[in-house]
Design a protein around this nucleic acid. Structure first.
Lengths: 252, 252
DNA sequence: AAGTGGTCTAGACCACTTT
DNA sequence: AAGTGGTCTAGACCACTTT
């Protein structure tokens, strides 16, 4: 690795170094997944203090390009915007059709007696729920994390299927007529560290958080889900007038 | 200011100090807009190196809580989530009604011969556009920045009004029948520094970016706008089934 | 000129992982 | 035991703003 000459410039050293790193990654000198040289080596290469190299690395870490691991090394994440094309829907039926072909990856399953995050006036609560946390992927690239709370009796009525397949289509198959309300609310937030790890995105990337609530004729919540989408996987098209590419606003 | 004792803990000093700062701001010891003590003073108070205090301040700066200004001091921004309630709409008429009561703040106005960011297949381009960059506020709190490109002849037909009032209602008043298509696409991104400054949010907060295109009967783009909303000002409600609080997905 | 934040150094010591 | 990133120090010098 040749020594890069950087000196006597009004731009701070650590910014120049960060730029050099960005360039190396862009040009493929450092490839995705690679372990970059150690702090000591880089400090020697650039002839700066170790802490100055770290400052540059910290910047790229915040940007999601590098991921230092204590004791192991610093790795290139370099996700160059896969720009996942995501189908979006606006009715429960469309949502069901969309999910029919999805194979979720189960992370956690547990039994709860309360819904932890439900707001007021959303519906009455059942006595027990089965909790599942899952990841949905597209081309091996995770695009959302779902935390599902499904009313326990419903879950038990077909537990094998509910465990391995998307919930919405199953719910529509067996309980369509008992569903009276279904709606979801989307907000925009910064990703929490845990979800960032699961979605393999930078620690504080923007995400869309969707709360989905389904109630039965008695006004009881039979399904509650919190979905966290990668911000770059969400694109919402709204037709205000005329015949756009889609007839109505749609959200996955 | 009493010396805060912090020592012999597995938690890094700068994180402890950052927590202390958060606490002081939350409790009102340091109020919004206040200038906090200098790095020297804080370093002496906490009996740590100046650079360690700076590390804590950097953390809170990234969170949007503190704003250091070189040569002046470090100030508390402390926006405690005003949670702006934003009305949302899904037709051009509703959008017009919503904007009728808005008084935008004009930042820039200029004349262009090209639309800089329009995608392919969105429509034919006119020969000239008038560009305006504006801020919309609610209770004195800015919630979005709009960059508008309005076809020059339309602008000139009523330039005083277009200069000072929202464009959509004026467009509906005078050109309703000539509008054939209007649609918008929302994506989720991190805020650029310039917009962050205008919206008074942290440098890389999550935002919703909306592209809005209006074309006339000839398929010519007469209006193009890019709107950047504060992420925490956007909330999208979608009714999948039943009679929710709103009948259809709506977006401001 | 004085005050304040921003950058940088050289080195020490620690926490964690791999050999 | 060796290697690697994380924290911290004490001090120097700089850039920018206010007095």
């Amino acid at each position: 690795m040749s020594v890069t000459q950087i000196n006597s410039s009004p731009i701070p050293l650590y910014l120049q170094i960060a730029d050099t790193f960005r360039d190396r990654i862009r040009r493929g000198v450092w490839k995705s997944g690679d372990c970059i040289p150690t702090l000591e080596k880089l400090a020697a290469d650039f002839q700066v203090a170790r802490v100055t190299v770290r400052q540059a690395i910290q910047l790229l870490t915040a940007e999601g390009t590098l991921a230092p691991q204590r004791g192991r090394g610093t790795f290139v994440t370099a996700r160059q915007r896969p720009l996942l094309p995501i189908k979006m829907v606006s009715t429960l039926e469309e949502l069901g059709d969309l999910y029919r072909s999805t194979v979720p990856e189960l992370l956690t399953i547990d039994t709860y007696h309360r819904l932890p995050t439900i707001g007021p006036g959303q519906g009455k609560l059942a006595t027990g729920y089965t909790y599942m946390k899952r990841i949905h992927s597209h081309d091996g690239e995770p695009y959302c994390v779902i935390s599902i709370y499904l009313e326990s009796n419903i879950f038990e009525s077909n537990s094998d299927a509910f465990r391995t397949r998307p919930v919405i289509p199953l719910l529509l198959d067996d309980y369509r007529d008992s569903i009276s309300e279904a709606h979801q609310v989307m907000t925009i937030e910064l990703c929490d560290p845990e979800s960032a790890r699961l979605l393999r995105i930078a620690p504080s990337s923007p995400v869309a958080r969707v709360h989905r609530v389904i109630t039965n004729a008695d006004g009881m919540v039979v399904y509650f889900a919190e979905v966290i989408y990668r911000g770059d996987a969400v694109c919402l098209e709204i037709n205000l007038k005329g015949s756009g590419p889609v007839g109505a606003p749609k959200l996955l």
